[in-house]
């Protein structure tokens, strides 16, 4: 464990909690892409199946349970509890265009052609594009609530910090996982234009609105 991975995990946890509280407190999921949240629930489910088989540390197991629990709670609130506030018209990204190629790639390029390993690889590839429906929805509505931009910032920051974690582990431990690194770089790149808008607008107190 190193500082980049710890702050990365905490940033990820912060994002998940921010979103959960935003929906719970405002009793509304307006501006939130339910499709992205479903993809994240799939990412955690396929990646954390080893919860039952491999014990790495108390921290590792606790965080996995928290991530999975929050992900499903968020999906439940979007599609059940507050479904009246779900903006389905703007959440129109075709997720099959993500899941199918990612599934095919996970079968073709992986570390080991075993069931668990292919699921893990699928989860890594899917996570790198899971935010696209959310970013697409913001581009369609042309704006995002400020709390939603903080959620996205923490979510994008988490994988950016993981990149520093991988540099650290390569340098100090000689460890590197090319699949996770490539997917993590792609994932972070997808946030770049959002990061630019976040820094130039939201941090200056303005609302995030895209030129429609």
């Amino acid at each position: 464990m190193n500082i980049f991975r710890l702050t990365g995990d905490l940033s990820h946890l912060a994002a998940i909690i921010i979103l959960l509280l935003k929906i719970w407190k405002s009793r509304s999921c307006a501006g939130i892409s339910g499709k992205s949240q479903i993809l994240f629930a799939i990412v955690f489910t396929t990646r954390y199946l080893d919860l039952l088989s491999t014990f790495i540390s108390l921290y590792n197991s606790c965080m996995k349970v928290i991530y999975i629990g929050c992900a499903y709670a968020t999906v439940y609130m979007i599609y059940m509890k507050f479904r009246a506030t779900y903006d389905g018209n703007h959440d129109s990204f075709r997720v099959e265009f993500l899941v199918v190629p990612v599934g095919g790639l996970a079968v073709l390029i992986n570390h080991d052609f075993s069931f668990m390993e292919i699921l893990w690889t699928f989860s890594i590839y899917l996570e790198s594009v899971a935010i696209l429906p959310q970013l697409f929805m913001i581009s369609k509505t042309g704006e995002a609530e400020t709390i939603t931009t903080h959620y996205l910032f923490c979510l994008g920051l988490y994988r950016a910090l993981y990149i520093f974690n991988w540099v650290w582990r390569f340098y100090f431990e000689g460890f590197f996982d090319l699949i996770a690194i490539v997917a993590g770089v792609v994932q972070t790149i997808l946030y770049c234009d959002f990061f630019y808008l976040y820094v130039t607008k939201v941090l200056k107190g303005k609302k995030l609105s895209l030129p429609a």
């Binding site: 990820h12 080893d50 790495i56 590792n60 965080m63 991530y67 570390h111 080991d112 996982d177 699949i179």
Partner: peptide, 10 residues
Amino acid sequence: VIGRTQHDEL
């Protein structure tokens, strides 16, 4: 690719 299937990261 040499197997690295013990994933200790979240």
